[in-house]
């Protein structure tokens, strides 16, 4: 591959273990999101149906719903990767494209999407390079080694993704997101492909990092336990074409204990909302599609 050195990486290769408690990471002002009557269709398939949703700046919102209900589509719209068929999305008053064009949207999907032929260091450095094109030269930036230390991968900087476990690959993807210094994180079930122990460990670290960096996070999942463990707020989407069927606040002390009675109550509410929406949708189909 090409050159492995990153101009912003001031601690090459043999860097002593950096205290992870001194990260110089700080996201710039996180954006507020506003979706007004957003609908989307692929061909004749209606995926989203006039969705209204406001997301506060710096909040952690989980979007839950059954598989295929349009959660991922919502995320693509927020990232500006697709355009809504109807309605309007604003990110701090501007279109979602503006933030993406500045390289400021953190995007993590179920698969880590690392470049298999590049080392972990190069994968993270790539995000930093793309980001560097839009940043102020005086902005304080953490080095790639710092970022890998934060996610616990400092010893694996020279490894290729295939040499890492699934959890470690997602950690590398997280370091890449951090390298972008992104004030908005769009997460499409990034823990879904991991085993339970790895998932819990990574989720804990993610929340810790989120609390330090404080970006606005939209976290898509179909796992209600995960949603209540991570998010401040859970938005429940009904079956396709999706609309918001419940909007629940997770008013718990961090770290959230997903097994606490309060958390379980929220999970029950979300499950009830999903079940009701599914029954309504089936009834609608039974009545000849009239909704």
């Amino acid at each position: 591959m090409t050159s492995t050195t990153d101009p912003t990486d001031r601690h090459p290769m043999t860097h002593p273990t950096h205290p992870p408690t001194h990260p110089r990471i700080q996201a710039p002002t996180p954006p507020a999101l506003d979706l007004a009557g957003v609908g989307h269709r692929y061909g004749t398939t209606e995926v989203l149906d006039s969705l209204d949703l406001q997301v506060e700046a710096g909040s952690f919102v989980a979007v839950v719903g059954a598989s295929g209900c349009g959660k991922s589509t919502l995320l693509r719209l927020l990232a500006g990767l697709d355009r809504p068929t109807t309605g309007r999305i604003t990110v701090d008053g501007a279109g979602p494209d503006d933030l993406r064009r500045a390289g400021r949207v953190g995007w993590m999907a179920q698969r880590p999407a690392l470049l298999p032929w590049a080392t972990v260091r190069d994968n993270v450095a790539m995000a930093r390079r793309i980001r560097a094109a839009t940043e102020h030269p005086t902005d304080p930036v953490p080095s790639v080694v710092d970022l890998l230390t934060i996610v616990g991968l400092a010893a694996f900087a020279g490894s290729r993704p295939a040499q890492l476990s699934g959890g470690m690959q997602q950690r590398a993807a997280l370091a890449r997101t951090l390298a972008q210094d992104a004030p908005l994180w769009l997460m499409d079930e990034p823990l879904a492909a991991l085993d339970e122990l790895t998932r819990e460990a990574l989720a804990d670290d993610l929340v810790a990092i989120w609390q330090r960096v404080r970006p606005t996070v939209v976290w898509v999942t179909h796992h209600l336990g995960e949603a209540v463990a991570l998010a401040d707020r859970i938005v429940v989407l009904g079956p396709r074409p999706a609309r918001v069927v419940a909007d629940l606040t997770v008013d718990l002390d961090r770290p959230h204990d997903a097994t606490s009675p309060a958390a379980q109550a929220i999970v029950r509410d979300a499950r009830a909302a999903l079940a009701t929406a599914a029954i309504h949708a089936r009834a609608g189909v039974a009545l000849g599609g009239a909704r």
Partner: peptide, 26 residues
């Protein structure tokens, strides 16, 4: 190119030359 990798490059608005050099060519 793996669609997930293409999505990632799109999410950071990488230019065509970068995508070619780091994803399409390899």
């Amino acid at each position: 190119v793996d669609p997930a990798i293409e999505d990632w490059f799109a999410s950071v608005d990488a230019d065509a030359v970068t995508v070619f050099r780091h994803a399409r060519w390899p």
